[in-house]
Simulated scan of single mutants.
Amino acid sequence: MTEVAGVIERIWRYPIKSTGGELLQRVDVDARGLLGDRLFAVRDAEGKLGSGKNTRRFRRMPGLLHLRSRYADSIDRPELLDPRGAAVLDPSAFLRSYLGRDDVAIAREGVTSHFDQLPVSVLTTATLDWVCSAVPGVPVDERRFRPNLLVRTPPGTPPFVEDEWFGNKARIGDTLCVDFVRSSERCVMTNEAQGDLPHSPLVLRAIARAHDTRLDALAIVAAPGLVQVGDSIVLS
């Protein structure tokens, strides 16, 4: 038995981890995830990666979300965009000045993965709409949750429908196949200001109260392929 869960509405890729990403119409997906996604990160002298939180692997570096990254030519060299949206000439030099640290540089992924959790994050409009209704007056869109794929779900789909996908496979487009495993555990990054989205502690608080801070569906790639805006996502 198969079920059409929705249609791909937007595709996001984040060339430099913890910066704002780029919208795509299509992208190849392999075992690692979307081609080039989080392939680069801001790394300090201790080898920790720039993030919105402090953990064993990550170092909180406030301000990264006000920057964006994209690939102009190839995935070998990402572009970093300043808060005004202009590409900077030397990303590492810019970050040292911007962050007020002389020990940071843009680094390509090596042995240690740049992903917080699993390679592909999928969020539905049903869940996103619920968040918007739970925090009236607070601007919310999917950028707060940094998904790779935003899925437009049919009218009447309940929020957190992603929970029902865990343990299932999904075909996306003609060839891509993913296995849904679990949801992301959300942290303070969901509250952070970025672009025209203001800081608000209400976002994480609402998710914690309603769904134990969990939001989205994380997946591993079972079969590589191409994903495009407009592709159906079919559960099996």
Rank of each mutant, 00 (worst) to 15 (best):
D102H: 06
V104F: 05
A105R: 15
I106H: 11
A107N: 04
A107P: 01
E109P: 00
G110S: 09
G110K: 09
V111Q: 04
V111L: 06
V111K: 04
V111N: 03
V111G: 07
S113A: 10
H114S: 02
F115W: 10
D116H: 09
Q117N: 14
Q117W: 05
L118T: 11
L118V: 11
P119H: 05
V120Q: 01
V122E: 00
T124M: 03
T125I: 06
A126P: 00
T127P: 03
T127G: 06
L128Q: 08
D129K: 05
V131W: 02
C132T: 05
S133F: 03
S133Y: 04
A134Q: 12
A134E: 09
P136E: 14
P136Y: 12
P136G: 14
G137F: 10
G137L: 11
P139L: 14
D141S: 14
E142A: 06
E142I: 01
R143H: 06
R144H: 05
R144E: 05
F145N: 09
F145E: 10
R146Q: 01
N148M: 02
N148Q: 04
L150K: 04
V151E: 01
R152K: 13
T153G: 05
T153P: 07
T157Q: 07
P158G: 10
F160I: 04
V161D: 10
V161G: 09
D163S: 01
D163H: 00
D163W: 02
E164G: 13
W165E: 02
W165N: 00
F166W: 13
F166T: 06
G167K: 05
N168W: 12
K169Y: 14
K169T: 10
K169W: 08
R171E: 07
I172R: 11
G173N: 11
G173M: 08
G173A: 11
T175S: 14
T175K: 12
L176V: 10
V178H: 02
V178C: 02
D179E: 12
F180R: 08
F180T: 06
V181C: 12
R182S: 15
R182A: 15
S183C: 02
S184L: 14
E185T: 12
R186E: 01
C187H: 12
M189S: 15
M189E: 11
T190M: 11
T190R: 12
D196R: 07
L197F: 00
H199V: 03
S200E: 03
P201G: 01
